[in-house]
Computed example of a mutant assay.
Amino acid sequence: MQIATARQAANLVAPLFSDAAEEKLVVLLLDDWQRQLAIEEHDAAGPGAVDLPLRAIFKRALALNATGLVIAHNHPSGDLTPSEADIQATRRLAATAEALGIRLHDHLIFAAGECASFRALGLL
């Protein structure tokens, strides 16, 4: 199945956050045609921001020859607003991905049954 929109990615990963009381990170790895290669879950506990384990994310992406990715994390507080630390971590991830020939399609935040897209917010 092709994951061509933020809504499609959100629908795919939303169930992984439905019972999450703690912050967690999901990475959706995609091929050249934006088809799902894998979904990886990571602990995302960081002070006020998602902790992006760049080495682990890119080790798996390179092993699968992924050319795209979507990351998602939740805010158990219920606030969809990306923190400044979320924004900075996402920019580092996007720059690293670009250097490796991988496109960061989006970063999604889930909170209180809603989803926010960094791309739709103009943050990517």
Rank of each mutant, 00 (worst) to 15 (best):
R60S: 08
A38V: 07
N65L: 03
S77N: 15
A94Q: 15
L124D: 03
F110Y: 15
P82D: 12
L69S: 04
L12Y: 01
S77T: 11
Q34T: 08
P76K: 03
A85V: 05
A14Y: 07
L104R: 06
L93T: 01
F118S: 03
A21M: 10
L28M: 12
Q2L: 04
I109N: 07
L25M: 14
P47V: 09
A6P: 05
A89I: 00
I87P: 06
L100K: 05
A49V: 14
I102K: 09
T67E: 02
L12W: 00
I87W: 04
H107E: 05
A63L: 03
V13G: 00
V50T: 10
L62V: 07
L108I: 14
V26D: 02
A61Q: 04
L69V: 02
T5V: 10
P15K: 14
T96G: 01
E22K: 15
L104D: 07
L123R: 12
P53R: 02
P82K: 12
I57V: 15
L124V: 12
I57R: 10
E23Y: 02
L123M: 08
A44R: 01
W33C: 00
F118Y: 12
V50Y: 01
A112S: 13
L12F: 03
K24Q: 13
A45F: 10
V27G: 00
A20V: 06
S77W: 13
A21V: 08
A45I: 06
A116V: 11
D79H: 10
L124R: 14
V50D: 02
A111P: 03
A66R: 04
L37N: 02
A111K: 12
